[in-house]
Design a protein around this nucleic acid. Structure first.
Lengths: 356, 356
DNA sequence: TTGTAGGCGTTATCAG
DNA sequence: CTGATAACGCCTACAA
C-alpha cells in the first residue's frame, strides 16, 4: 500500500528535481569528482567504485546536463546545418549523407532553413554561434544585390569554428572549405549530349538569379555553346525562373514563337517539373517536338513519360564529404582548407530525340 | 601604421578570447548585472547606460553564451525533431511546416534521423534529454516485435518536457499529444472511389509491418471492404513491402496469377513508385489493365502517365499543428493533451478506370 | 585512488 | 537604478 502510494507520487509529481552528479555523490557518500570521472569513462576510479556509481546513476535516473558540461569544456557536440530552402528535394539525400557521418561521432545537428533569405540566414548564424555549435555546414544565399553574410561566416572562422560550404560558396572566403559540383562541366555534358544528337537550337531555364550554382550553370551553358560552336539565342535563355506560374508562361511564349528552340536544359528539379508540365499543357510531344535535359535526379524522373534524361549530382556524397571535412577541421587534424569539386553524371533516358 | 598592425593581429589571431558580459562590464567600469539586464531587455537600466552597453557589446563583438544562460535558466530554446526515416519526402513539407512555427518564436530544432531503428531512436532521445531540449516532436518507431521506446518518452514527460507525436503514435501513452491522419478513413476514401468506378477485386501494398500508420491503413482497408461488401482476397494483400526489389517481385507474381486484382492501393510515396514501375515493366496499361490509387502526394504524381489518383495528407499542416501544440505545452498554457486527427483528401486524376 | 576547491558565463536575489 | 554575491551542474588541477 505504502509502496504503491510512493510509486504513484513519483509518477504523478509534475516536475521532479533532476538528479545531478552531486546527488549521486551524496547517495554514495563519495565526492562529486569521482562520480564525474566514473561517468565520463575517465581513468582514476577503482573498478568497484565505478560500478557502484554507474549503478546508482542508473537507479537515480541520472541524465547529464550538457549545458553545464559545455560551459566548462566548450564542446557541445552540436553543429549547424544551414539549408538554402528546405523544400528542395536535394536536402533529403544531403541530410541523410550528413547524418551518416555525424551520428557515429556523437554529433547532433540543428537545421536552419533560410528560405533563400539573407536576413534569416544572418539570424540563424547568430543563433548557431550563441548556441556554441562546433561547426557549420552551409549553402549560403547570395542576394541578387550582391549582399551576403560573409562577414558573419568570417566571424565564425575567427572564433575557430569551422565552416564548410556545400553546393554553393561565397566568393572571396578562401579560408573556408567547400564541397561543390562542377556545374559548368555538368551543363557541358548536357549541351554535348544534345549536340551529338543533332540539336543546335538550345534553350535553358535558369532558377533564381544570383544563386551561385545557377550562375555557374549559366556560364557553363554559354561556355559550352561557344566551345561547341552552337549559336546562342538570348531569347531562349529564361532567367530567374523562381515562380512556377511565371516560369511556365515565359517558357510557353518562347515555345510558341516562330523561332523556337528544339531542346531545353533545366537547372534543378523544381524546373524539371515546371518544364515538363508546361510542354505537356501545350500539347507538344517530348522528345518529338522538344527535347529536354533535366537537372537533379529525382527517382520519379524515370517514371514520367518519357523518362527524363537528367544531369545527376551525387547529392549524398556531397553531404558525406562536407560533414567529414567539417569533423576533421573540428578535430584540428586538417591544416589547409579543402575545395572539393565533384562531377555530375548524365543519365541518358528518353527525353532527347535524335535529329539526324 | 600601429593601428594597421593591430587590426591585422586581430584578424589573424587564430583563436580570440571570446568577450563575455564581464569584459563589457570592465570596459565600461560597471557591474556585470547591469550588462546582463541591458542585453536581455530586462527593465531596471537607465536608457543612457543601456545604450552604452549595447554599443560596447556591438563593438567588442559580443556573442552571448547560451550554455551558460541555459545552465542558469533551464531554457535552451531548442527542441528535438525525431524523424522515422529522413529519406521519406514526407519530411520536406513537414519540416517546412515545423520551421514556420518555431522560427518566429526563436526556437531551433535538432533533427534526429532514426531510420526506423529502435536503438537509434533510444540513443537520440537520450541525447536530446541531455541537451536539454524543451520539447520533442517525434514519429516513433514501433518494432515488429512490439518493442518501443515508450519508457523514454515517459521519462521525458516526467521531466516536464512535452512530447508531441506526429504521423505515428505509441499506444498507451495517453499523456502525450499527437497529430495524426485519419488513416482508416483515408483508405476508405480510396476503396470507395474504386468501388464507385466498378472495381471489386482490390489489392493493397503495405509498407513495413508494425509501423502504426501502415497497420492503420491495413485495418482501414479491411474495414472498408467489409463495409462496402467487397470480398477480401488475402493473396492480394502484399505485406512488409520495404525493399523495392522484393516488393516489385511480390506484386508481379500477384499480377501474373490467374486470379488477379483489377486495382491496387498504395500506402506511401515510395510504394507509389514501386507499383507504377512494376506495372510499366510488365507492360500492363494503367488504368486499362490495372487501376492504381496512390498514397502521399508528390508533385510529380501529376506528371507521370497517367497522372496518379492519390490519397493526399496535409503534411505541412501536420507539421504546423504539431509544433504549435508543442510550443503551447512548453509555455504551459495548455492543460489537457490534444489528439488531433486530420483528414486525407482524394485527388482524382487518371489512374483509375471506370469499369461499368 | 579519492577528495577539495575554483571557475566556466550567466542570471537572480538582495542590498544600497 | 546599480552593484555585490551566490548559484546553475560539471570538470579539473591540485592536494591528500
Amino acid at each position: 500500500m505504502k509502496m504503491n502510494a510512493n510509486v504513484c507520487e513519483r509518477l504523478r509529481s509534475p516536475v521532479m528535481k533532476k538528479t545531478t552528479i552531486k546527488d549521486i555523490a551524496n547517495e554514495l557518500n563519495i565526492s562529486p569528482s569521482s562520480v564525474s570521472r566514473a561517468l565520463s569513462d575517465e581513468p582514476g576510479v577503482s573498478p568497484s567504485l565505478r560500478k557502484e556509481i554507474v549503478d546508482a546513476a542508473e537507479r537515480l535516473n541520472y541524465i547529464p546536463n550538457s549545458s553545464a558540461k559545455s560551459l566548462k569544456t566548450r564542446k557541445t557536440q552540436t553543429v549547424g546545418l544551414i539549408v538554402s530552402d528546405i523544400r528542395n528535394p536535394f536536402f533529403l539525400d544531403f541530410m541523410s549523407g550528413v547524418e551518416t557521418v555525424l551520428f557515429p561521432r556523437g554529433y547532433k545537428f540543428i537545421v536552419c532553413d533560410i528560405g533563400e533569405d539573407f536576413e534569416k540566414e544572418r539570424i540563424y548564424i547568430k543563433w548557431l554561434l550563441e548556441h556554441g555549435v562546433e561547426g557549420i555546414l552551409s549553402s549560403p544565399c547570395g542576394g541578387e544585390d550582391g549582399r551576403n553574410n560573409s562577414r558573419l561566416y568570417r566571424e565564425a572562422v575567427r572564433r575557430n569554428i569551422p565552416v564548410v560550404f556545400y553546393d554553393r560558396i561565397l566568393e572571396g572566403l578562401d579560408r573556408i572549405s567547400s564541397v561543390t559540383l562542377d556545374n559548368r562541366q555538368a551543363i557541358l555534358q548536357g549541351v554535348l549530349h544534345l549536340k551529338e544528337n543533332g540539336h543546335r537550337k538550345l534553350g535553358i531555364v535558369l532558377h533564381k538569379k544570383g544563386i551561385y550554382t545557377i550562375e555557374e550553370r549559366r556560364m557553363g551553358f554559354l561556355e559550352a555553346c561557344k566551345m561547341l560552336d552552337i549559336e546562342i539565342n538570348a531569347d531562349w535563355i529564361i532567367e530567374n525562373a523562381v515562380d512556377a506560374e511565371r516560369a511556365s508562361l515565359s517558357l510557353e511564349s518562347v515555345l510558341k514563337s516562330d523561332r523556337r528552340p528544339d531542346a531545353i536544359i533545366s537547372t534543378n528539379q523544381f524546373l524539371n517539373e515546371v518544364i515538363v508540365a508546361t510542354v505537356r499543357r501545350m500539347g507538344l510531344k517530348i522528345p518529338g517536338d522538344l527535347s529536354i535535359v533535366g537537372f537533379d535526379d529525382h527517382s520519379m524522373n524515370e517514371l514520367i513519360e518519357p523518362p527524363l534524361t537528367t544531369i545527376r549530382q551525387p547529392v549524398k556524397d556531397i553531404g558525406r564529404i562536407a560533414a567529414t571535412i567539417m569533423l576533421s577541421e573540428i578535430d584540428g587534424t586538417r591544416g589547409d582548407k579543402s575545395k572539393v569539386v565533384l562531377k555530375a553524371e548524365l543519365l541518358q533516358r528518353k527525353s532527347v530525340s535524335k535529329l539526324m
